[in-house]
Amino acid sequence: MRTKDELFRAAQREVAGYRQQAVMQAETTRRAAYAAHPALAEADAAHIRAGLGLAKAAALGSSMDAARAALARADETLAAAVKEAGYDESAFKPAYHCPLCEDTGMRGGIPCRCVADVARRLRREEINAASPLGLCQFSSFEVERYGTNVEPELGISPREYMGKLLNYCKNYAARFSANSPNLLFMGHSGLGKTHLALAIADAVLEGGHDVLYTSAAALAAQLGKEHFDYTNNEEWLAACQEADLLILDDLG
């Protein structure tokens, strides 16, 4: 398991990879088009020269009117050449995954939401590797499979009881915050404890919080290793300590 910082850095690397791929794909498309249409390549070269001419005029303090006019003509010539070759204006522009930050990962000086989206997906993949998270949502929890006979110990039927428990868990996940109380699910195997716990994890992740899922046995084993070797996989325990929501399965 990765810490929040490790997960964020991994998400940033993935977004940066998207940008590199988009830029390379656009360049490949441009080169192929220019090779097939020499007039297009010539118009682009003229456009570059006109742009350099404007930059030179600005640097030397010369009159820029002529340079601006030359660049405007080059813009028109290039646009006409692109259209003549059968391409639209965006044909040679990178197709970014995120149009908000253009796959830079930053927007307005802060991390773009696309980085958080990738980090959330990476965390889901981690949890999925250890559990059936993808199958355990509130919508897939079937209260109909529980009995309808009243249980004296409950005073209501198991179905009604589990319906109330399902609603409680939904509300818990929807209102989750750093001040949310701990939950302890108790009962025999097969009653739906893991399903509800993972459904909470799914909803809390979707709400923008970081969630870690592991078994109590795995945590105990890791704590045992730490007791004898303080340098052993410290990130694992750090991730547990930093998590907004830590889910321990099979506690008892």
Rank of each mutant, 00 (worst) to 15 (best):
S140G: 02
H195V: 03
D250Y: 07
R145Y: 02
R49Q: 08
N233K: 01
M162N: 08
D244T: 02
M24L: 09
A79G: 02
N171V: 06
G187C: 00
A174L: 15
V211S: 06
L205A: 08
P94K: 03
T29Y: 04
A178Y: 12
C114A: 08
Y87F: 15
Y96K: 02
G224N: 10
E126Q: 14
R113A: 12
A174H: 10
H97S: 07
L154F: 11
A41I: 07
N179K: 14
V15N: 04
L191N: 14
G192R: 00
G192I: 08
C98R: 05
A173K: 02
K193D: 08
T231P: 02
H227L: 08
S189K: 00
E151I: 04
Q20M: 00
A10H: 06
G207H: 00
K193Q: 13
N182R: 05
A11Q: 10
C114D: 04
A243W: 07
G207D: 08
C114V: 10
A220D: 09
C98V: 09
A85P: 14
E160P: 02
A91S: 11
Y96P: 02
V15K: 07
G51E: 12
A26W: 05
D44H: 11
R30K: 15
Q25D: 15
A33Y: 09
R107L: 08
E125D: 09
D202V: 00
Y87H: 10
G252S: 09
E27T: 13
F176I: 13
E27G: 07
W236M: 06
S180K: 06
W236C: 08
A91M: 04
E6M: 11
L245H: 01
E89C: 04
R2S: 06
K4A: 09
R121L: 00
A69M: 12
